[in-house]
Nucleic acid binder design. Sequence first.
DNA 1: ACTTATGGATAGTATCACTATCCACAGAAC
DNA 2: GTTCTGTGGATAGTGATACTATCCATAAGT
Lengths: 215, 215
Amino acid sequence: MRIGELSRRSGVSVPTIKFYLREGLLPPGELTSPNQADYADAHLRRLRLIRALIDLAGLPVVRVKEVLESLDSDDQALHHRIGAVHRALAPPRQPAEDDGARAEAQVRELIEKRGWTIEPDAPAIGTLAETIAALYALGQGDLAADLDSYADAVERLAEREVAAVASRPDTDRIAESVVVGTIVGERLITALRLLAQEHVSARLLGSAPGDSQSE
Amino acid sequence: MRIGELSRRSGVSVPTIKFYLREGLLPPGELTSPNQADYADAHLRRLRLIRALIDLAGLPVVRVKEVLESLDSDDQALHHRIGAVHRALAPPRQPAEDDGARAEAQVRELIEKRGWTIEPDAPAIGTLAETIAALYALGQGDLAADLDSYADAVERLAEREVAAVASRPDTDRIAESVVVGTIVGERLITALRLLAQEHVSARLLGSAPGDSQSE
DNA sequence: ACTTATGGATAGTATCACTATCCACAGAAC
DNA sequence: GTTCTGTGGATAGTGATACTATCCATAAGT
């Protein structure tokens, strides 16, 4: 297939595809002559993945590139590839605030208590610590007090997700599933959580004290 | 307090604070003379909230403004204010793809089955449908098959979150907690989920078949 | 008196994610 | 075999976003 068809089938404009090729997000097609190249189904799949990472996960292009690179590094153990994907997905670090130390201690304590096997330099540790520190700084530290029930919930989910993903036939598909599951799954959880919040808030607050409608 | 102190205490530069004032993110201080204004603790708190929404949640400035506006509209029932916040937080809609109808039906079915009280135009419905449609398009539809266990997990979390938040003394603090809890809580869940995934993947995949290290 | 800080306005900058345009040439259609 | 659309590759331009920089008259602190 040539670039025009790739564009039509992916919904991505030709100039944008060219841009992704330049940026190295998409591998070049196979040249059949100096100005003619052939693209395969793998290109189409890769393009859809790129759009999902950009549109759904809101990743910047450079980060997409890193994710795809760790996806393509097939000379590592699968678990290590997952780690690489996680590292590429981590949001940029904020300079640690006052509550940083307390928050990080809380995170390490949680990991210890749950017996989780986590590399000590996992980027999510920093992200989590920053987030908890931010909650303290915003005077909402009590929301972080219940970390354990959050951990319960996500551990169950992770259990299912990893199991589902590990059942794929080949490792390349597994790695791709990890990316999609991590990134798109996050949005799925977010949206579902908003729905659940709306339901619960309708029930608990719909006409409760503090409701200006009832006063 | 004057703008210099506000800057020092918040860690936000004076020009940036001026920018937020211009953009209407931060209400103006009380003028004590034509070129001298006084800022209160509320300004400091608001500024920290703004930074959290921008840095932690990655919201663009215009969206932050919308969130703050729905936060300040105190003439509504609390449950409605939560809805307004949710609406302001919704990511921009994507044009629906082929799988859109199927996905939306699946979402409505889930809501019905769980007996959730959700307004039919809740933005999260669209977000969720899009996300599921994207999973189908990426050939990872099976990740969406288990929607119910995701719903279980988030329903429990929402239950705790809304209860925690509803226990605040005054409605303004409740509304602020809703924003912080929704936005920052999301990052908390994300980071925890990554940790849980790493743990589970270490256990299930650390030296499993498909692991190039063991072959 | 004098240095520093302030409120308000206006203009400029860096980054990002594309778009637009150009070119010589390929392939397909007549 | 020529004409017309499509292509790979390169280079330059655009629009949006989130600040920064500068200026000014005036106020506060020393």
